[in-house]
Design a protein around this nucleic acid. Structure first.
Lengths: 102, 102
DNA sequence: CTCGAATATACCTCGATAGGAATATACCGG
DNA sequence: CCGGTATATTCCTATCGAGGTATATTCGAG
């Protein structure tokens, strides 16, 4: 389940790094302070969840973000969103941000 | 971390049940098909995460939803939301729903 | 074809946690 | 005060997953 994938702090850090730009495994390993196999294993989980995609370039693997599955989380939040205080304001702020981007 | 709390399927089911209306522990136990201690344990985790609140009525404990902490998830999603395909439409659909409620 | 670089996989260990059974606690009715 | 009901806590066990080390794989350079 997607929530399990995101429950891991290191994996969220990886997503955050990929938010910036695609990274090869070595760079992720360095920035995370993990061992290389550790990084690869998290990347595998993220890949299987459809949250990242690989672009092969010789021996280098460029990992890039695939945010689409996160929509599932957003959907799950929907019935709760209308309940929490100030939700309307926050949601409108979101939409305003998006409108600006057009 | 909040994601860990939500990673547990049973806990998400509890939240779903509480979305409907507050429940005493016994009812939750019955509807979940768990043992009573099992239910109590999950409720404790949810309580410590601030996701539920208890209203004591004699020996009965009515658990009710506190959706506020879920805003944290929503905040985390924000930078990703603008990336996934169709996000604008979905977000607008959300907002339309909310507008209808006013 | 060989060497080295970049990444993936296999295997092991350890800590966290869900689940159950037994027990403790709190509170009402009588 | 006593018995029973509703819930919480404790203890135990089995499972899962993160992290590490060692090893396999793949590919380019020369």
């Amino acid at each position: 389940m997607l929530f399990d994938v995101l429950a891991e702090p290191t994996r969220r850090r990886i997503l955050d790094l990929l938010l910036e730009r695609p990274h090869p495994v070595g760079e992720l390993t360095a920035r995370l302070g993990l061992t290389q196999p550790g990084t690869s294993k998290h990347l595998r989980v993220l890949r299987e969840a459809g949250l990242v995609q690989v672009r092969i370039d010789a021996q280098r693997r460029w990992y890039e973000l695939c945010p689409a599955p996160l929509a599932e989380i957003d959907t799950w939040l929907t019935p709760y969103r209308r309940l929490w205080a100030g939700s309307l304001d926050r949601l409108e702020a979101h939409l305003d941000t998006m409108e600006d981007d057009r």
